[in-house]
Design a protein around this nucleic acid. Structure first.
Length: 553
RNA sequence: GCCUGUUUAGUUCAAUGGACAGAACGGUUCUCUCCUAAAGAACAGAUAGUGGUUCAAUUCCACUAAUAGGUACCA
């Protein structure tokens, strides 16, 4: 069964056009060596029909004829049973009006496929790993992480729907300096609880969550930790704080509807995997020694300068761990690795691509989705954010204030390339102003209609659906699989939030123009069928976005 | 300085190289004896600048200007 009727219809049209051109060439009407690449598109203007092609215009140069003349020839030779009307317009566009049968077929397809409507085979089962969030376990997730979290999660869902085999992974930076700082911070707070005078150095985590951890530590161990050696004290603090933070992060993400298939610990790379990875690069000739340090020759692959992997004190850099980590990912056999990074890390992309190439893989095996920064606003005013001081707004705070549905929607409603203004007051507003509720309201409205219906949608005669609002709605429903394809290919979830919005608009317009539950039983049945299909698609898209689809509001 | 985004209506954002650039909010008007008015309809309003490629540019290229971020033997 075809899962994407719109694509089928487009392919048919393309086929008919190609045949027509072929025939014209054979008959000597067109002077061309071969049939050019044919494409059709849905015109922006409704008056231009259901589909249009620029075929006559792109061949004009080669055929040495004016486009409108070519269009005439193409139309004369065209055999297309589904096409109701053809016309030439503007500089040489050929516009098609189709009969509605495929739209009715598509309604049946939606009801038949149910929650699977929209799923396509674009990815052909290719294995994709999406790594996202990957925040240091040294504090709770804050708003800076939220956008990347939702973008990663929804991109993963979209690619699943598009037929990829997707794995979600979180890389835990649990080795290195920042963990030592966490240990020191915790120990200081612990000592503070003991009643000792402490001084908080500048480069220490000052957030209140550290105090909580220290208090828990005190409840568990009393003051006995202080009897141990300094090194042991730090180790206890480090491990306890680490586990607590990781638990906290995992919970916050889960509450936000985000779950990972795998959590990868950086520690497992130290030191063997790192040494092996570096050795591998060295064997390939991409490592050299200078000033007691080991350098990776990333300039061989287009990076601005070479990068240190092993410092002169023999400790590995962050990049070294990342080299080992990415080698591990590559060896796990994924066809595509996708990393979701904040814009503040974009400078890191060329060196990571260099790593991929150095290991002998294609550069674009690794793809980085760069997510631009978020500005948090309250009533149009910027909210100040300072990091180390501990006065940041956490992800959890925001989610609790505006609700996870609204928060998820807001984080993905813009192109990832665009900066995001997130206004808490707007996101919280339960009104027209808020696109989330607008979409959810359409779904709730449908349930109300179905509850009020006295007939059901069986034995329907779909030919009765002729109203422009009905046609618009059916076309919108038919677009869904293509929207999945577009979002999956472009890795841009915002196409789907705007699709959901447009679908809701088409439904509301239908609602206001076409009464469903009427005296006319036949018409009611047909409309109910359309309403049920709309319910299904709204539900599917909301589910994909990780947003609830309430039956009443 | 160099690298990467962004620049479209009063504001926040859309638009696989296509025809008359779409929404939302804000402004001005209409529409509930009717399945949820958390809705619908109407009006006014924009491609930063200069060149180039193209039958066709918001889209591709170059330069200019604004703006955000990056530019570590830090993570």
């Amino acid at each position: 069964m075809h899962k994407n009727l719109q694509a089928v219809v487009e392919a048919k049209l393309v086929g008919y056009l190609a045949e027509s051109v072929k025939k014209a060439i054979y008959d000597g009407e067109l002077d061309l060596d071969q049939v050019p690449e044919v494409s059709v598109e849905i015109p922006r203007e409704k008056e231009h029909g259901d589909y249009a092609t620029n075929l006559a215009m792109i061949t004009a140069g080669k055929a040495g004829m004016n486009p409108r003349k070519i269009a005439e020839i193409i139309i004369e030779n065209l055999e297309a049973p589904e096409v109701e009307d053809v016309s030439i317009a503007g500089p040489g566009f050929i516009n098609f009006k189709l009969n509605n049968n495929w739209l009715y077929d598509n309604l049946r397809l939606i009801i038949g496929l149910g929650k699977d409507y929209g799923k396509i085979d674009q990815g052909k089962g290719k294995r994709v790993q999406i790594e996202f969030v990957s925040a240091n376990p040294t504090g709770p997730l804050h708003v800076g992480h939220s956008r990347g979290a939702v973008v990663g999660d929804v991109t993963a869902s979209i690619m699943e729907a598009a037929g990829y085999d997707v794995e979600r992974e979180y890389y835990i930076n649990d080795a290195g300096n920042q963990m030592d700082i966490l240990a020191q911070s915790t120990l200081l707070r612990y000592k503070e609880i003991m009643g000792r005078d402490i001084e908080m150095p500048e480069d220490v985590y000052a957030g209140d969550y550290v105090i909580e951890i220290a208090e828990d530590l005190y409840k568990l161990h009393g003051d006995e930790i202080l009897n141990k050696s300094e090194q042991k004290q730090l180790e206890i603090c480090r491990e306890y704080a680490y586990q607590e933070m990781l638990k906290n992060i995992e919970e916050d993400l889960k509450d936000f509807g985000i779950e990972f298939d795998s959590w990868f610990s950086e520690r497992t790379l130290h030191p063997d995997k790192i040494n092996e990875a570096v050795a591998k690069l060295r064997a390939k000739g991409y490592i050299y020694e200078e000033e007691d340090a080991l350098w990776f020759k990333s300039t061989d692959f287009g990076d601005d300068k070479d990068r240190v992997v092993i410092k002169s004190d023999q400790s590995p850099t962050y990049l070294a761990a990342d080299i080992a980590y990415h080698l591990d990912k590559l060896e796990r056999g994924f066809d595509k690795l996708i990393n979701v990074w904040g814009a503040d890390h974009h400078g890191y992309i060329p060196r990571m691509k260099a790593v991929i190439e150095a290991f002998g893989y294609k550069r674009d095996t690794l793809e980085v989705i760069v997510v631009q920064m978020v500005t948090l606003l309250r009533k149009g005013k910027k909210m100040p954010m300072s990091k180390r001081a501990g006065s940041f707004v956490t992800m959890k705070d925001v989610n609790q204030e505006v609700g996870t549905d609204a928060a998820r929607y807001y984080y993905i409603m813009r192109s990832t390339d665009s900066h995001l203004d997130f206004d808490l007051e707007l996101a919280k507003e339960e009104s027209t102003n808020n696109p989330v509720y607008y979409v959810q309201y359409a779904h709730a409205r449908i349930h109300s209609i179905i509850d009020n219906a006295e007939v059901d949608g069986s034995d329907q005669n779909l030919d009765l659906l002729q109203d422009p609002a009905e046609i618009d709605l059916m076309k919108m429903l038919a677009k869904y699989p293509e929207e999945i394809k577009l979002s999956a290919e472009s890795r841009q979830p915002h196409h789907l939030t705007s699709y959901a919005y447009d679908l809701a608009t088409a439904f509301h317009a239908f609602y206001n123009n076409c009464r469903v539950n009427t005296e006319d039983i036949q018409l009611s049945k047909a409309r109910l069928y359309l309403v049920d299909a709309s319910r299904q698609v709204l539900k599917n898209v909301l589910t994909l976005l990780g947003i609830s689809a309430p039956a009443e509001m």
